[in-house]
Amino acid sequence: MRLIRTKAVVAGLGLALSLVACGDAGSDSEGADVEVKEDAASEFDDGTRMKELADAGKVKIGVKFDQPGLGFKDAADDIPTGFDVEMAKILAADLGIAEDEVEWIETISDNREPFLQDGTVDLVLASYSINEERRAVVGQAGPYLVTGQQLLVPEDSDVESTDDLQGKEVCSVTGSTSLDNAEAEGMKPVGFDTYSECVEKVLDGTVEAMTTDGTILAGYAAQNEGELKVVGEEFSEENIGVGYSKDHPEMCQWIVDTITQAHEDGLYDDAFKATLGPSGVDTPELPEMDACES
């Protein structure tokens, strides 16, 4: 472990240097909903990561590319869409960085911690559930959203809850918490690389259902209207947070404050309505976020 941490620090330093070299803070391009702060760098204390990023005018944010409503990007898009992405835009804007200046990097469930540790990304907003094991290796601020695991089934399916799927095959992403939960609930988990492959398997009837966070499922239901529906009580609670590197603990409070402010300004609600709202999910209250350590 020590070895990795050292490597991460070295990588982080290298990154910081290269970012400083880029220069040119701020941007005059306008964000869609979010106002990009002018002269953001002056608001941060020297030596903080936020100051470095604001000075550089560049930030690398890891999001998912395959979860409609949360983080989704197809080949034609320049900038991903979804609630996670909107949250990311709010954070970037506070650094004075517009959405088209952000480097959007696809993260999958497996590589979020390594990407944060080695500086491939500065922030992760990728339906990133907070848990103790993860907090042992990376920082997680939030939660900014609480979701629960539900089921996505064909429109004409009789399945109403996990009770109807005992011992049945249910699809999710290999190595995800959802897959473990499905197993714990008595279903037989079947893992694929992406959610879209699972959707395919539900549509062609190979499996009766797929399962993951309700918000993600809602996105797929909206994408396949009339063919798929979300059913069942939430049978797990996932606290979605923002990942950052442990080397920069000062980012935690900034993330909490920025999101809280965005909620007060109504940006949080707007973001939710614009992304997950069309799937028929009611806009929730901003959850109470965990206190940041020192």
């Binding site: 497996d110 993860r134 290796v137 990376v138 190595g175 897959l179 893992g191 398997k201």
Partner: peptide, 25 residues
């Protein structure tokens, strides 16, 4: 096969690393 619906060793490993990010190595 681990990412094609079979919970083989590779799929289990992904599950383990997802649940225990602190014990990756």
């Amino acid at each position: 096969a681990g990412v094609f619906g079979v919970l083989d060793a590779a799929a289990r490993m992904k599950g383990f690393t997802n649940d225990h990010a602190d014990q990756r190595w």
